[in-house]
Design a protein around this nucleic acid. Structure first.
Lengths: 346, 346
DNA sequence: GGAGTCCATGAGAGCATTCCCTTGCGTGCT
DNA sequence: AGCACGCAAGGGAATGCTCTCATGGACTCC
C-alpha cells in the first residue's frame, strides 16, 4: 500500500535507482563510482551510462555515515581577538594564510569549512564541530602563544596542524618560520648599508614570532657591535607603527635605520618619516617583515624579509592531510627560511 | 555471538547508548537533544545527565542523512580569474565580503565551506558539491557580469543568493549597491569643491558595477554642465590606477579632480600625483570608491564613497538563510545606499 | 579431466539518526 | 460512570551508502 501513497515527486536518484537501470546490484555501482576495482569494463560502461541517464550524484551524508569521513577539513582562525572578525580576511597575515590553505586544498579536490575562534564559546564550538564529525581534522592559524585551542583539540583526539610553534610542548604537527634568522638578515642589511643608529619596532610580545624577531634582531646587532638597540613595541597595525615611529623619532632624532616586525608597521613608519621630512632610504632606511601586499603597495616600496605564508599554509595543510591517511599519529614540523627582498626603502 | 566478537574499542557513544544509560528510548533522547517538546522534566534531566556521563555528541552525518540538511552553506568566490587564487582573501573586496558572510553566519551558529570558482572545472565542482548535499545553499560573491555560475546553480535547483545584480534576468535573490548614486555623490562633491577639470578612472567595463559607476558619474557631471569627462579604464588594481593616472596627467596636465572607481586605483593615482609634484587635495582632489582598508591606509587618507560590503554580505547571507526556511521560493533583492566619507584627499 | 584459484558480482548487514504511528495513561466533560 | 481527548513515550521504518562475505563461473595447472 505504501507504494501507492508515495508521491511521485522527483526524489533525487539513489544508488538503487542506478542499479536498477543498469541491471546490476548497488554494490557494483558503488564499486564503479569509487575505485573502479574488479569491475568488468562492459558493465562499468553500462553503469556509467545509467549514472548519466539518471543524473545520479552520491549522497555524501550517507557516504560519510558509513565511512566516518567527511572529506572536508576545518580552517580555524584563532587568537584574533584584537581583529574585528569581519576584517580577519583582509588582514595580510590571516588572509594570505587562508588563501594558502584554500589553494592547496583545491589541488586535492577538497574545501575547508572556515571557523573563527576568538572566545571561549567559539572555541568549544570548534571542538564540538569536529567531534560531531563535521570535518576530518583542523588546520589552525593562530598567533598568540597563550591560545588554548591547540591543546583542546589535541586532548579531544582530533587531527590538527598548527601554523606557528605550539605554546607548550604538545604532540602537534606545525610549520613555522626561522624568525630569528629573518631578523638577522634585516640587521645585516642595515649594517651593510652603513646605518649606525638603528632602532626597531617589534610586534606584540605575547606572540612568539614577535619575541623571536626582536631577539634575533638584537642578537645580530650585538654581533655587529651594537649592544643596545632602541625598541618600541607595536601591535602589528599601521597605526601602531606610526605612533612607535613618532616615539622613536622624538627620542632618537638622529636615527638612520629602522627594522619593523611587519610590513604594516613599516608602512606606518614610512608615513611618519615622510611627515617629518626624512627621505627614505636616503636619510633613514626602513625594513619590514612578511613581504605582504603592504610591502609593494607602499611608496617607496618596502625592502622586507619575506615570509612565504601561502607556501607555509599549503605545507601545513599537507601535513594534516598526510596525517589523516596514516594510522600512526606521528607529529612533524617544517621550518621555512626567510629571505631578504630588496626594494626601495632600504 | 556478534557481541562476543565486538571489540571493546572506545567507539564513540551513540543515541542508543545514552538511551540505555538513561533508561529511556532513542526517541526520547532525540527529543531532549532537539526541541525539548513533550518531555517530562524529570526524564529530561536524567537524559541530560546520561548525555554528560557518556560524553555523547550527535553524529551529524546520520542526522543530515535523515533530515536532508547539513547546517553548512557554501561561500563561493567566483569570477576571480584575474586574481591569483591564494591572494583572493587579501583583496579588499573579496576579503571584506567573505568576512561579512562568516561573521553573520557566526551569529546563527553556522559556518561556511569556502569554494573558489574560476574555471569551468571548479564551477561544475561547486554545483556537484551542492547536489551531493554538502551544503544547504550557496552565497555567491561574484563580480563579472559574464559569470555562468549563477545560472548553473539556479538550474540545478540549488538555493542561491548573489552579491551584485545577476547578469540576465534570473530568479535569484541578491544584494547590490546603488552604484550610480554613489558616483553622483562623488561628482557632486568634486563640483562643490570647485573642481573644473575632472577626470575618472573606471573599473573593468565587463563588470556591471564599473559600468554603473562610470555612467552614474558621467550623468551627474553632465547635469553640472560637464558634458565630456576624460576617462581611462583600469582593472581595480593599484598598478592600473597608477598607469591610468599617468595617462590622464599626460593628456590633461591641468586637471584638478579625479574620481577612481575603487580605492586601490585611487591609491595608485595618489602615488603618481605625488611623484609629479601635485599636492592632494590642494592641486588635485581625489575620490575613491568602496571605503576599503586602502582608503585609511593611504596618505593622504582617501575621501571615498562607502560601500558597506560587510553589511551587504551579511544581508545576503540572511537572504539565503531565510529562503532555506521558507518553502516558497520567492526571490528578494536589497539595494544599499552608498555614502560619502570625507577624509583628506578631497 | 578434475581440483584448485581467482575474480567478478550479489545479498545483506550495518551506520546513527529522525519521523511517523501507536500505545498507555490521566483528565475533563457529559 | 463512561467516553473522548491530549500528552508522553516507545517501536519500527526509513534514510542512502559502503563493506564484508558468500557464491558462481571461468581459467589454470597438473
Amino acid at each position: 500500500m505504501s507504494e501507492v501513497l508515495r508521491p511521485p515527486a522527483s526524489r533525487s536518484p539513489t544508488l538503487e535507482d542506478v542499479a536498477k537501470v543498469a541491471g546490476v546490484s548497488r554494490a557494483t555501482v558503488s564499486r564503479v563510482i569509487n575505485t573502479t576495482r574488479n569491475v568488468d569494463p562492459a558493465i562499468r560502461d553500462s553503469v556509467r551510462q545509467a549514472i548519466a541517464a539518471t543524473g545520479y550524484v552520491p549522497n555524501s551524508a550517507a557516504r560519510s555515515l558509513v565511512t566516518r569521513r567527511t572529506g572536508t577539513i576545518a580552517l580555524v582562525l584563532s587568537g584574533a581577538q584584537d581583529l574585528s572578525s569581519s576584517q580577519v580576511f583582509v588582514d595580510p597575515f590571516f588572509g594570505r594564510a587562508a588563501g594558502g590553505v584554500v589553494n592547496f586544498l583545491r589541488t586535492r579536490g577538497r574545501h575547508p569549512v572556515v571557523m573563527l575562534a576568538d572566545t571561549d564559546e567559539s572555541r568549544t564550538h570548534v571542538v564540538d564541530h569536529l567531534r560531531q564529525g563535521n570535518a576530518d581534522g583542523a588546520v589552525l592559524i593562530t598567533t598568540h602563544s597563550t591560545d588554548p585551542l591547540p591543546k583542546l583539540l589535541v586532548d579531544a583526539g582530533q587531527p590538527v596542524a598548527l601554523f606557528a610553534r605550539p605554546p607548550r610542548p604538545l604532540a602537534i604537527s606545525y610549520v613555522d618560520l626561522a624568525h630569528e634568522r629573518g631578523a638577522a638578515l634585516a640587521a645585516g642589511h642595515l649594517i651593510a648599508r652603513g646605518c649606525r643608529r638603528v632602532a626597531t619596532i617589534s610586534g606584540p610580545l605575547d606572540v612568539f614570532a614577535s619575541q623571536d624577531r626582536l631577539s634575533g634582531f638584537q642578537t645580530a646587532m650585538a654581533r655587529h657591535g651594537h649592544l643596545s638597540v632602541p625598541h618600541v613595541e607595536g601591535n602589528f597595525t599601521q597605526d601602531s607603527g606610526e605612533s612607535a615611529m613618532r616615539q622613536l623619532l622624538a627620542e632618537h632624532p638622529d636615527l638612520d635605520g629602522v627594522f619593523a616586525a611587519n610590513d604594516l608597521m613599516a608602512q606606518g613608519a614610512l608615513d611618519v618619516l615622510r611627515e617629518h621630512g626624512r627621505r627614505v632610504p636616503a636619510d633613514v632606511a626602513v625594513i619590514g617583515f612578511d613581504d605582504s601586499s603592504a610591502a609593494t603597495a607602499s611608496r617607496p616600496a618596502l625592502t622586507t624579509i619575506r615570509q612565504p605564508v601561502e607556501d607555509m599554509a599549503g605545507a601545513l595543510t599537507k601535513l594534516l592531510l598526510d596525517s589523516l591517511d596514516q594510522t600512526d599519529r606521528r607529529v612533524t614540523s617544517v621550518i621555512f627560511e626567510p629571505t631578504l627582498v630588496l626594494r626601495q626603502s632600504a
